[in-house]
């Protein structure tokens, strides 16, 4: 009886740890991935950040670049996974913040040695937003004053030139 209990406990323990290893990916930053690329190579990782720039379609797949505030990393995904992405980060907008789960590659064989993540899961955490630019009043005033002085200087310079003639 005792033997059976120990055997069952061992089986359960082993299954739980295996399940944890397979199902739960590590949540890592871009700096951690880049600095320990060999260690994470081929492992499933969870990575979070803002989608920036273009969403680049490649047949059935797509490249997006996700920036976690330190670096941006290329994400290779099936195009269906990214259909919820509306905003991408640039001067005029904050991109959608996404959490992706996939296999990290230090030097991806499929993509000419790129450091990338091939994902099978993408979750939008925060929606992006169009940034409404507020004109900086101090800058505007400075520009007016300086341009006024410049105009005056040009005028004086022109008058001096004509006087010389």
């Amino acid at each position: 009886m005792m033997r059976k209990l120990i055997f069952i406990s061992l089986i359960i323990g082993f299954s739980l740890s295996a399940c944890h290893f397979l199902c739960y990916a590590e949540d890592v930053s871009s700096a951690e991935l880049i600095n320990n690329a060999r260690q994470y190579d081929g492992k499933v990782v969870l990575y979070k950040g803002e989608v920036i720039g273009d969403i680049m379609m490649r047949k059935e797949f797509v490249w997006i670049n996700v920036n976690d505030g330190i670096n941006a990393i290329g994400i290779w995904s099936n195009k269906d996974l990214v259909k919820d992405i509306v905003y991408t980060g640039n001067y005029k907008s904050r991109g959608d913040v996404v959490e992706v789960r996939g296999v990290f590659h230090r030097a991806c064989l499929e993509h000419g040695g790129d450091l990338d993540i091939h994902i099978d899961e993408l979750r939008k955490i925060n929606s992006g937003v169009v940034i409404k630019e507020k004109p900086d009043i101090a800058k505007r005033n400075q520009a007016f004053v300086l341009l006024g002085i410049l105009g005056l200087a040009l005028l004086l310079s022109q008058l001096k030139k004509e006087k010389h003639k």
Binding site: G53, M56, N67, N71, G74, W76, D114, D116
Partner: peptide, 10 residues
């Protein structure tokens, strides 16, 4: 124009 330099284009 992007922080990843040429890697951005893949």
């Amino acid at each position: 124009p992007q922080s990843q330099n040429i890697l951005y284009y893949h």
